[in-house]
Design a protein around this nucleic acid. Structure first.
Lengths: 166, 166
DNA sequence: ATTGAGATGTTATATTGTAACGAATATCAC
DNA sequence: GTGATATTCGTTACAATATAACATCTCAAT
């Protein structure tokens, strides 16, 4: 049996990773910033699945590649990747997840499944519009927002309804 | 000059605190749970202003009252207060703020001012409705949500426009 | 070759949060 | 009231997350 709990949808994940890495490399070139080996490896590790990854897990995983890696190694790479908009920090998990919309500067919604732990990013324009109205009402100028919803994703809900073999 | 940056609106803050504490005490009685001295003191310290307070700051502030206080003392009180819905955790700040809507079970929006550090809680029904629609679209069952917006509040925006005496 | 900016190595430490277990206290049935 | 039970608290130890500070390296532009 494959790991269907983690990558439930028919999903070519290496395509997923490749797209993200290729685009990141391209954007770095355009912006004149360096996607160094460490930064690229961290980005690749984050994209290993659609979970939110913890900094110290990344540290363990990068050590075979970068034996000198220390916490600062990881946090610096994470800072860079965040500045470039390649990843998001999931505030409610102290963890990090790849951004799958590098082109547009959308602020987004993160749907975090408690069961499979996948994090789905959605643009949710209607939510953002309602938020903007709310800011106007409150006289608030928004700079940055974190919208994180914990629950059960569609795939897990479905698979939970499939009769179990007991 | 008074501390107008922290409590900018004409605002009877002791009323604010008293209301919160009285209501919390009442709800605890109704629910058959204990609002012990420690828990009440922590709640009171959180309500000292409208900032998000860090756990270790609370620890320092409660020591004059509870000389035996240790991290676990604070975190247990915080757990209790959260379970009862008396406070919110601000995920993006690792900090805690009083809930000013104890009666209704609204999930809410936190508007966090970078300048005065006040946290304003808003119900934002339109945002929640848009969110609910988004969940339906995504087939997602939401259990808990954190919506945290960082920016500049109305009061600070106004006072920033007042010509400075230089 | 020099230099200057950015990236990394390295050590140390700060901050945030939990686990585990025994002692004290409150609550409830009798 | 007394004893049984559950809850709360004290205490120690530690885990997990994150940053500061400074030295060194790399590499491109001059």
């Amino acid at each position: 049996m494959t790991d269907s709990a983690e990558l439930p949808a028919p999903h070519n994940h290496s395509l997923c990773i490749n797209t993200a890495l290729t685009l990141a490399a391209q954007l770095c070139t355009e912006r004149g910033v360096q996607l160094t080996a460490i930064r690229q490896q961290v980005l690749e590790l984050i994209w290993a699945n659609h979970h939110a990854v913890k900094a110290y897990d990344l540290l363990e995983r990068i050590k075979p590649l970068q034996s000198a890696a220390k916490p600062a190694t990881i946090y610096r790479a994470l800072d860079f990747l965040r500045e470039q908009g390649f990843i998001h920090r999931v505030e409610s998990l102290n963890a990090f997840v790849g951004c799958n919309d590098l082109k547009s500067a959308h602020e987004q919604l993160l749907l975090i499944c408690k069961q499979c732990e996948n994090v789905e990013e959605r643009h949710a324009d209607s939510v953002m519009q309602a938020l903007t109205q709310e800011f106007v009402l409150a006289g608030f100028t928004a700079h940055h927002q974190a919208i994180e919803i914990h629950g059960i994703c569609a795939t897990c809900t479905q698979s939970n309804h499939i009769p179990q073999l007991v």
